[in-house]
Amino acid sequence: MPTAPRRPLAKDVRPVELDDLDARIVAILEREGRITNADLAAALDVAPSTAHARVRALVDRGVVAGFHASVDQARLGKGLQAMIGVTLRPGARHDSIVAFADEVRRLPQVLQLFFLGGTDDFLVHIAVEGASDVREFVVEHLSAQQSVATTRTSIIFEYHRNGIAAPFR
């Protein structure tokens, strides 16, 4: 499997049509990104060269945007995860949105940052050791920012992920 996918040069976000074989490859890679080319070819009942060429083409076309590891945060001492909805204050929205996103995405506790349309402006997914760390994160890194109007914290008990989406362009 390629380790450093090449991104398409154009910012073409039109849907890419997949034939049946490409769709099956995508489904397998979503479940098991580290599958060997030989195992992928066997699962598809195609030659290894065909599997390799098809995966390479999916990467080149931007359909497969990367290969990812799923990290057990609890094994790293970060057994508590939370989703924090953040609403920014009105006024100078563009600047505050950009500044907020730039600052928060760099924090080591942040696993994912979502910019939303709706009640919340952002959804911040964090992993920390315990409840006091969630409180500290919200108070020191979110509520302390002048652009933040409100936060809503939800503790994650359990989750299921069907796949990993590539960042929006």
Rank of each mutant, 00 (worst) to 15 (best):
M1L: 04
P2Q: 05
P2C: 04
T3I: 08
P5D: 04
P5G: 09
P5E: 06
R7E: 06
L9R: 12
A10C: 09
L18E: 03
L18I: 01
D19H: 02
D19L: 07
D20M: 11
D20W: 06
D20G: 04
L21R: 02
D22V: 10
R24Y: 13
E30V: 15
R31C: 13
E32K: 08
G33D: 05
G33M: 01
R34N: 05
R34P: 01
T36W: 14
N37D: 14
A38V: 11
D39I: 10
D39F: 03
L40A: 05
L40N: 02
L40M: 05
L44T: 05
D45N: 09
D45W: 04
S49Q: 14
A51G: 08
A53C: 12
A53D: 12
R56A: 02
A57L: 08
A57P: 00
L58W: 06
D60G: 07
R61G: 03
G62N: 12
V63D: 01
V64I: 05
V64N: 01
F67V: 06
H68L: 06
H68V: 09
H68G: 10
A69L: 13
A69W: 06
A69E: 14
S70N: 11
V71G: 14
V71E: 12
V71S: 13
A74G: 07
R75M: 10
L76K: 03
L76S: 01
G77A: 13
K78G: 02
K78E: 02
L80D: 01
G85W: 14
T87E: 02
T87K: 02
L88S: 06
P90Y: 08
P90I: 08
H94D: 15
S96D: 14
S96L: 15
I97W: 04
I97T: 13
V98T: 11
A99G: 15
F100K: 05
F100R: 07
D102V: 04
L107V: 08
L107M: 08
L107Y: 15
Q109S: 07
V110S: 04
L116M: 10
G117F: 10
G117L: 07
G117M: 08
T119L: 03
D120C: 10
D121C: 11
D121P: 01
D121H: 10
L123P: 11
H125L: 15
V128K: 00
V128W: 00
E129F: 05
E129M: 10
G130E: 07
A131K: 01
S132A: 12
V134F: 00
V134P: 01
V134N: 00
E136H: 07
E136A: 07
F137G: 00
V138A: 01
V139M: 08
E140R: 11
L142Q: 01
S147Q: 13
S147R: 12
V148W: 01
A149D: 09
T151M: 02
T153G: 08
I155N: 03
I155M: 07
I156E: 03
F157K: 02
E158S: 04
Y159D: 09
Y159T: 10
H160L: 11
R161K: 10
N162D: 10
I164Y: 12
I164Q: 10
A166W: 13
P167Y: 12
